[in-house]
Simulated scan of single mutants.
Amino acid sequence: MELLQLQYFCKVAKLEHMTKAAQELHIAQPALSKTISRLEEHVGVPLFDRNGRQIQLNAFGKAFLKKVEAALSLLEEGQRELIDLAGMERGRVMVATTTHKCFSEMIGSFMSLHPDVQMRITQASSEEKEQQLQKGEIDFSITFPPLELDGIDGVNILTEEIMLAVPPTHHLASRDSINLAEVAHEPFICIKEGNPFRAMTDAFCQQAGFAPNIVCEVDEHSAISHFLHAGIGIAFLPETLGDKVNSLRLIRLERPFCQRTYQLAWRKDRYLSVASRTFRDYVISYCAGLQKHSTVATSEEK
């Protein structure tokens, strides 16, 4: 059994398409097919079900894939640890994050301070980030809500208030704060279902004793302001987006108190390189500064 066979097997298992896998691996399709066949001969069972040109991972293949992914992850970590010990690594950090403005600025700041560190940043759904973390495909995930999974460690790095955004002509625009129940009959502009933010805001409304009257659903927060300006409804927005909605009115929600917390998560048994540990320390310090600034600003407003 060769390392290359295992790497090729993982790629075919992921795509379940021999031609596409060969293209991504930059090898000829017949050569890839032969490699997979040799691997199946070695393990003694077929790893894929084949039906003409269709290929699908079978029960043997699924069981084998879990072990192969774990083995390849350990080998990669071992290599990184040896390079660290030899003092040769210039650094590499792999992060799955959100589109949050604070985090893009934070990562850009880190890269400016550490130009030798190679950053690989991906945007992914909560489910994808969780899977990538558990498989060892990334070093860190920046996510909300915080993950509570066996084998995953993490630290809460940023808590932000969720505000109610209304057009400047809205009858509540003069208010600094309200109870959420006061807008039970207002039309809402919301993020689409399936997004963690939507699940969170629906839960806020449930705590306040009502289900939101949703008149418009959008894919992301950047689209909400357009409909707010059109006077279609009101919307939940994170406080950190306040500088992007200067012409709108942000109102603090007192009951229930609405906020969300972001977590920096990593796999407990994954070796973290010097670069990764440096990044983790920087994120914690950077977000602590943001949180302190936010607390001071809130106190001054009061």
Rank of each mutant, 00 (worst) to 15 (best):
A31R: 12
D269N: 12
R90C: 06
F144C: 02
A86E: 12
N58S: 03
L47A: 05
A165W: 07
E89A: 14
F210R: 15
P187L: 02
Q29C: 02
P168L: 15
K66H: 05
A59T: 10
T98S: 04
M88T: 12
P115L: 10
L82G: 06
G87S: 03
M106Q: 07
D269S: 06
T159E: 10
F257L: 11
T278S: 09
A184E: 05
L47C: 04
F140E: 01
F140C: 01
F110K: 02
Q23S: 13
I214E: 06
R255F: 10
Q206N: 08
I36S: 01
A124G: 05
F236P: 00
K34H: 11
V93M: 04
D153W: 15
R120M: 09
T169V: 13
I214H: 10
V218I: 07
L228I: 05
N51G: 03
R90A: 14
D150R: 14
A21C: 03
M18L: 13
Q132M: 13
R260W: 11
L272F: 08
S294F: 14
L85P: 00
Q206D: 05
D269C: 08
L250N: 04
T143K: 07
T99H: 15
Y271I: 04
T201R: 10
S222E: 14
G233K: 06
G91D: 01
Y286M: 00
M200D: 00
Y262M: 04
Q132W: 12
C287V: 07
C205I: 01
P46H: 07
V166N: 06
E193W: 05
H26S: 08
H226G: 06
N156R: 15
I152H: 08
D243L: 13
I83H: 15
V296M: 14
Y286E: 00
E128H: 08
A288K: 11
V68S: 00
I232W: 12
S125F: 08
T201M: 11
F210D: 02
I232V: 10
M163P: 01
E105C: 06
G289H: 15
N195A: 12
V283R: 01
E300S: 10
E41A: 11
F210K: 06
P196A: 08
V215K: 07
F144E: 04
A22L: 09
Q291E: 08
S177P: 02
A181Y: 14
F236A: 01
E193Y: 13
L250M: 15
A173W: 08
R270D: 05
L149C: 05
E220W: 14
S222D: 13
F204W: 10
R80H: 11
L4N: 12
R92C: 09
T19A: 12
Y271L: 02
T35H: 06
L25V: 03
V155N: 07
V245K: 08
H293L: 13
F9Y: 09
F197R: 06
F236E: 01
A173I: 04
L158R: 12
V68F: 03
F64M: 09
H185D: 11
L241A: 06
R255P: 00
G61V: 01
A21Q: 03
S174P: 03
T98G: 03
C102M: 15
P238K: 10
I107N: 01
A275Q: 02
D153M: 14
G87V: 11
